[in-house]
Nucleic acid binder design. Sequence first.
DNA 1: TACTTTATAGAAAACGTTTTCATTAAAATT
DNA 2: AATTTTAATGAAAACGTTTTCTATAAAGTA
Lengths: 345, 345
Amino acid sequence: MKKGQSSKTVTIKDVARQANVSITTVSRVLNNNDYFVSEQTKQHVLQVIEELKYRPNALARGLHSSKTRTIGLIIQDITNPYYPKIVEGVEKRAQNSGYTIILANSRRNPEKTAQYLEIMWEKRVDGLIMVGSNIIEDVRKNHFFHESEMKTVAIGKPQDAMLHSVQIDNLEAGREACRYLMSLGHRRIAMITGSDTSVSALERENGYRQAMKEAGIEIVPDYVIRGDFTFEGGIRAVEKMKRIGGKDGITAIFAQNDQMGIGALNALKNRGIRVPEDVSVLGFDNIQAASFVTPALSTVAVPMDRLGETAMDTLERLLNEEEVETVQYLPVHIECRDSVGECRV
Amino acid sequence: MKKGQSSKTVTIKDVARQANVSITTVSRVLNNNDYFVSEQTKQHVLQVIEELKYRPNALARGLHSSKTRTIGLIIQDITNPYYPKIVEGVEKRAQNSGYTIILANSRRNPEKTAQYLEIMWEKRVDGLIMVGSNIIEDVRKNHFFHESEMKTVAIGKPQDAMLHSVQIDNLEAGREACRYLMSLGHRRIAMITGSDTSVSALERENGYRQAMKEAGIEIVPDYVIRGDFTFEGGIRAVEKMKRIGGKDGITAIFAQNDQMGIGALNALKNRGIRVPEDVSVLGFDNIQAASFVTPALSTVAVPMDRLGETAMDTLERLLNEEEVETVQYLPVHIECRDSVGECRV
DNA sequence: TACTTTATAGAAAACGTTTTCATTAAAATT
DNA sequence: AATTTTAATGAAAACGTTTTCTATAAAGTA
């Protein structure tokens, strides 16, 4: 423990001293505020900075400017295969433009969301991206969210039409999915819904109902089974279904997410029902596991990476005070794999 | 756009003025530095704080104290099902003790890692958790990492024995896995290795070799097939295997991660080889998809959440200047599902 | 030549805290 | 009653930047 050489972290002062200029000048070359500093001094200062490996203290900077180049990303549950892709999308664009992400994983707990918002406010994040209707609502009602007047973009459908958002059109997606099944000859199409608190779930269901109606097919109430977005929920749903396949059984199952779709696949295997020969199964989301299972799950592919990327792009434009359309829809497509086939009856 | 009432954000000054005390006093009640402030004033100030919904500016605080209550979490690829659980583990503990996470997703790019480290240094994170040997090495060699003298804990095996780390014992895990298969009567056990740059992969392989040796079984070179930790790699590996099942074919396949294990499952189905009747398949990691596939994949379960939690706990103790053992091993266990059975030949 | 402009630079205030030091009033001790 | 201790408070410096304002010297302009 020697005394003299305490390796203090190098500040702008050190650079100034070493370069024989004022800190003002250093600050100027640092910010490239070409505000009048001679090329010569500039180069010299730059060299000293390099020598000393000086990096400005972001706290000091932020304190003064109230800009932190940090954004908050609030999600429900990083463990859900749906989210990591979104996170990556956001992260990609964020890093690209010099923003850092504070990750807030609410674990579906509104209280945690509130805590995180308070922290985001304390840390003066420049903006916020939030994913999922629940979160969006939790945030919208929060005091500190309003206090901060944070620029925000939602991934998903906000109640408040004023909020900027990036979404997929769940109704249209449900409709298309259903039409796709009908185009293969299916008429007796069952649906495993999402949890009844989910807005997306409801819209997908409406899309399905609408498509059926348009095709003049009456929906047997038994064909719509409440699910909960879990693997087990998918299994239970299939167990509840009466007749599957055969002359007047269900010929196709449309699950509102892949987890349930995969659950359905497993339950069908257990009941000795072949997919897609006896019944087709269509999922939603296109998580990685969908391509791992056998038969590989056909699904409505949500562009999760693009959602993240677009959200970050939008946020950035908001932060730059540029105009952006309030709601942006991203297209889905149907990823055809092995679990959906033509109707055989 | 009225002029007078610009809703300025409320600072400690506002609280002080409103409460008719000095900012020193406010600061004192804020920090609960029970340094001499009368109960009465304290309550009064607290009330004003509540009224004004005042929250201290973390930047100003951090600037003064050089403590930001923020940690950096550097991972390779959030999209890989292995990581989200770790992230959640870290996040859980972090939030619990008032730390915020800056997420750095390096996307396997050393340059990005370097950029992130620079930012972490600029933002004065208190500590760092890094996951995976590559990352650990990239970080270890980085200038700003040393500059910052950041407290760090690695998840995985660091080259530098001085670094604190939380790990599983890959060699022992490989050994146990292999012994488990042998205990079911398997002798002709193939291994699909991980990428050859991975330290863990090498150790798991060594464990396997050691177990085989201990049992006096010679390893046919053909039985060890280079993989790359991907689903497709698992498929290709199985395609390369000559005899599987039957009198003197391979009776068990030990894949070094679940993705490859699942790939193997698919390839075997394609070749018309039954699992586990003809051949058993054992994976590694225990990702969610392992329980989704059929037959459900038996696997060496890595406690990913615990790794994250323990890492954060350790980091916290480091930050509190407490003593912590340098390396901590967490136990794995074998998750028995359907893809492994007794050897039938 | 005398005055204005312009390029370059620095001093000092500000950002919102925490902390050190000083001050006062009340209480305790002599 | 005079002194010391202690409880409660505030003023001001510090943290590391950016920015505004001021100052100088060189270069143009009249």
